[in-house]
Design a binder for these strands. Structure first.
Length: 161
DNA sequence: GCCAACGTTGGC
DNA sequence: GCCAACGTTGGC
């Protein structure tokens, strides 16, 4: 099982919305590195830190998990979508996504500013300068540490991995 | 294949 | 709103 951090602008799609929806297709990623991670590296059951970006207080809001993989992002076929890709066809989709499911909202939202103060998180990709990738791998120990900061109810489960 | 120009991301 | 970092585009 791998661990990830996935960014979303809460104005566009928040963890709260995922809680309401239960699951959602991770549409709209148009970066090849992020696509390749979703397509080639993600497996059902992988754990996801749900990160809120481009907001007043960016940070990790809670947890999700990968529930399906290898799905064609439907927005690439929709001419009216901002994510429309005229070169993509249903027979030969260019943008492959995963579906993720809600796990929990952290008891404590963990702001980026706090992540930056944690020596244990040295090397976490989201803390690197210019780390714009919207789907990032996270080391298991970094993942577990952030779960502790957030007072995750899945704490013991994380430590067991 | 190089690289300058441009667009986007995202923290601040 | 600013701006640094990065990815993509397109001329050559």
């Amino acid at each position: 099982m791998r661990h990830w951090l996935m960014k979303s602008e809460p104005d566009a799609y928040s963890l709260e919305q995922l809680r309401l929806d239960g699951v959602t297709g991770w549409e709209g990623v148009r970066n090849y590195t992020a696509r390749n991670l979703m397509r080639d590296q993600m497996s059902v059951g992988d754990r996801v830190l749900f990160y809120h970006s481009s907001t007043a207080i960016p940070g990790v809001a809670g947890l999700a998990r990968v529930t399906r993989t290898g799905l064609a992002d439907p927005s690439q076929f929709q001419p009216k979508s901002p994510y429309f890709d005229p070169k993509a066809t249903p027979d030969n989709p260019r943008w492959i996504m995963v579906e993720i499911g809600f796990v929990e909202a952290f008891k404590r939202f963990v702001p980026l500013s706090e992540l930056r103060t944690e020596a244990a998180l040295e090397g976490l990709m989201v803390l690197q300068r210019g780390a714009r990738l919207s789907v990032q791998p996270a080391a298991p120990e970094h993942f577990a540490h952030i779960c502790r900061l957030g007072q995750s109810q899945h704490h013991t489960l994380q430590e067991a991995t």
